[in-house]
């Protein structure tokens, strides 16, 4: 079900919205509030027509991490009333549970609000950052690193295919053999990645990157009426919620 389209929003709106959601998540410390915020974020993402199938996969990866942090918090925070006592030793306290909840909720909110950004294209965020008066080099490098992760991943994958196709068994090997191979191949992959980054910097310079202190742009993002409304309303609401 799609009520409105996040895809149509101006990227600046999404950046501001995400920043506000994360600020709220970090600065407010009540479980009920954070829970409400999480529900709100989820609704936003779902009703906004974000492609959830791929997105959920990325959150799933985080689940394990959040769960283990939850457990650790439970055990290591000692405050409030004891909830679980085994053999005279207090294992879990109410304070521990509360802190663990807060931490997990915060992480979930961060993860889901990041999903907001996935409804746009890298190139539009780059433009948005530039139009928000962030220097192009910084904006470009931020975006390039985001863009580069999948490329480097693919390149590393290519090397893994190459290794296996030259007869090195990885799928059926013992973990020791695997570890050994990974370590062996780590260095060349790193060297490759470094070379690649350097080559990219060169390729950019050879096409006149930073020839002038300024730069022009083919496209320009224009704020529509509802974008402007969002840009004003979201920070105001955030402020109110923070002060209240």
């Amino acid at each position: 079900m799609t009520l409105f389209s996040l895809v149509k929003w101006d990227p600046r709106c999404k950046i501001i919205l995400m920043a506000c959601l994360s600020t709220l998540a970090m600065l407010r410390g009540e479980v009920w509030f954070l829970f409400g915020l999480l529900v709100f974020t989820c609704l936003l993402v779902m009703l906004g027509g974000a492609e959830l199938s791929g997105a959920l996969g990325q959150v799933k990866g985080l689940l394990g991490l959040i769960f283990s942090l939850f457990i650790i918090q439970c055990f290591f925070t000692r405050s409030g009333e004891p909830w679980l006592v085994i053999g005279g030793f207090t294992l879990i306290t109410s304070g521990g549970i509360e802190l663990a909840c807060i931490l997990s909720l915060r992480l979930f909110i961060l993860a889901f609000s990041a999903l907001l950004l996935l409804t746009g294209e890298v190139r539009d965020y780059l433009l948005a950052l530039v139009q928000m008066k962030i220097p192009y080099e910084i904006a470009f490098m931020t975006m390039a690193s985001v863009h580069f992760i999948p490329i480097l991943r693919e390149e590393a994958l290519n090397v893994f295919y190459a290794i296996q196709l030259r007869g090195c068994e990885l799928q059926k090997a013992s973990w020791r053999k695997k570890l050994h191979t990974y370590l062996e191949i780590c260095l060349p992959i790193l060297v490759g990645a470094l070379k690649r980054t350097r080559a990219m910097a060169l390729a950019m310079e050879a096409r006149a990157f930073r020839a002038y202190p300024k730069r022009t742009y083919l496209r320009r993002l224009v704020l529509k009426k509802n974008d402007k409304a969002i840009l004003v309303a979201v920070p105001v609401i955030t402020l109110v919620l923070l002060v209240y």
């Binding site: 006149a208 990157f209 020839a211 022009t216 083919l218 320009r220």
Partner: peptide
């Protein structure tokens, strides 16, 4: 990319 670096008009 290249023409943008040269500060040409859109």
């Amino acid at each position: 990319f290249a023409p943008e670096n040269l500060c040409l008009s859109p």
